[in-house]
Design a protein around this nucleic acid. Structure first.
Lengths: 197, 197
DNA sequence: ACACGATTTTGACGTACGTACAATCAAGTG
DNA sequence: CACTTGATTGTACGTACGTCAAAATCGTGT
C-alpha cells in the first residue's frame, strides 16, 4: 500500500474521529503511519488531502445508498417506497462513519470551489439515478423535469434522514412509518393505510 | 451593545464567511470589533463561542422555517403540501447565511456533546411542531407515533433541500414540482394531478 | 554495477494559534 | 471618597501548526 493510499485512509479516519476542523496534518500522518511531509508531496496541501478524503467518503456513501434504494426497484410498485425507506434507514447504522464524513464534506462545500463543484455534480447525478430507481425505469426513459422533482425529493430524504441520524441515532422512526408519513403527507387518505395506526 | 453580543454576532459572521474550521479567535475579535481576550472572559473558549453562535443561527433558521411552514396551515388541506414546499423553497435564498451556519452546526454535532444534545433537542421539537403545522392540528391533538413520522419526513425535507441548496442553489425545482414529486412518490396515481406533467 | 526518476524521511523554519494574567476602566454602593 | 464587582484591554507565553528543502532510499531499466 502506497503512502498516498495510506494518507487518504488516514485522512478519512481523522475526518470521522476528529472532524474536519480538528484534524491536523500530524494527526493524519500518525493515523496513516506515513510521514508528515508526504502530504505535501502527494496532495499539495493538507486541505487538498482532506477535501479529497471527504469527497471519496461521500462517493462511497452514495454507492451504499444506491445499493439500498436499488433493492426497492425489484419490489412490488405499491411496496416500493416502503422498501426503499426501510433499506435506507437500515443502512444508516452500518455506515455511520461514511455519513459523518459526508456531513463534514457538506460543511466544507461553501468554502472550497473544488469540493462544492464535485458535490454538486454528485448531487445532480444522485437525483437522476435515485429517480430512475424509485420509479423502476431506465435513466433515459424519464421525463426530465418530473424525474428531477422525484430525485430531488428522494435525495432530500436521504440527506435529511442522515443528518437526523447523526444528531440522534435512536429517535428515527422505522421505514414503515416514514413511508406511511410520506403517503399521508401527500394526502393519501386511504381509509385502511397500514396497521400501525 | 455589549462585547458579548458583538462577539456572538462576529462569530456568526465568521461562521458564514470562513466556516467553522477556518475561523480563528483573532478573526472573531476583528469581525466583532471586540478584544481578543474577551472571548475567554465571556465564553470560556473560542470553541464554546463558536458552538453557541452556531446553535443560535440554527435556532433562528428554525424560526424562519416555522414561519414559512405555518403559512401552509391556513391553506386548503389539498394545497397544504404545495404551499409548504413553495414557502420553504422561497425562504432559502433569503436565509442563505443561516442555512450555511446551520450546516456548520450539523458538522460539529458529532464532536461536541453540548452542541449535539442541543441540536438533537431542537430536531425533536421541530419534528413535533412541523407535524402539527402540516397537519393543521394542535400539537397535543396528535397521535404521537404518526406525528413523529410526519415530522421526521418534513424535517428531512427541510434539511435535505437546504443542503442541496448550499451545494447548488440554482438547480432546485420549484415548490409545485417538489410537492408533485412527493405525491407521485407516495403512489398518487390520480389521472389529473397537476398541469406540470 | 550504475544511473536516474520517483518516493520517503529528516529536520527545521517561520508563523499564527488559543489562552492566561495582570493592569485598567466603569459603575454601583456604603 | 473608598471599596467592590464586573468588563475591557494590553501583552506575552508556550506551543502546535503547515510547509518546505534537502538528504536518503527505493525501484527499475540498461
Amino acid at each position: 500500500m502506497s503512502q498516498r493510499e495510506d494518507l487518504l485512509a488516514g485522512a478519512r479516519r481523522c475526518l470521522v474521529e476528529k472532524g474536519y476542523s480538528r484534524t491536523t496534518a500530524r494527526d493524519i500522518a500518525t493515523a496513516s503511519g506515513s510521514h508528515l511531509a508526504s502530504i505535501g508531496y502527494h496532495f499539495g496541501s493538507k486541505d487538498a488531502l482532506m477535501n479529497l478524503a471527504a469527497l471519496e467518503a461521500q462517493s462511497e456513501w452514495g454507492d451504499v445508498i444506491e445499493r439500498a434504494v436499488r433493492a426497492s426497484a425489484d419490489a412490488d410498485p405499491v411496496q416500493r417506497l416502503r422498501v426503499a425507506m426501510t433499506e435506507l434507514l437500515a443502512s444508516l447504522p452500518h455506515q455511520r462513519e461514511l455519513v459523518v464524513a459526508t456531513t463534514q464534506a457538506y460543511a466544507q462545500a461553501e468554502f472550497g470551489d473544488d469540493i462544492r463543484v464535485a458535490l454538486a455534480e454528485a448531487s445532480r447525478q444522485a437525483r437522476t439515478e435515485l429517480a430512475a430507481m424509485v420509479l423502476g425505469r431506465d435513466t433515459t426513459d424519464l421525463d426530465a423535469d418530473a424525474a428531477d422533482g422525484i430525485g430531488t425529493v428522494v435525495h432530500a430524504m436521504v440527506v435529511g434522514l442522515a443528518v437526523q441520524f447523526v444528531l440522534s441515532p435512536d429517535t428515527l422512526p422505522d421505514g414503515d412509518r416514514v413511508a406511511a408519513a410520506i403517503v399521508e403527507l401527500a394526502g393519501g387518505d386511504h381509509s385502511d393505510s397500514n396497521g400501525a395506526a
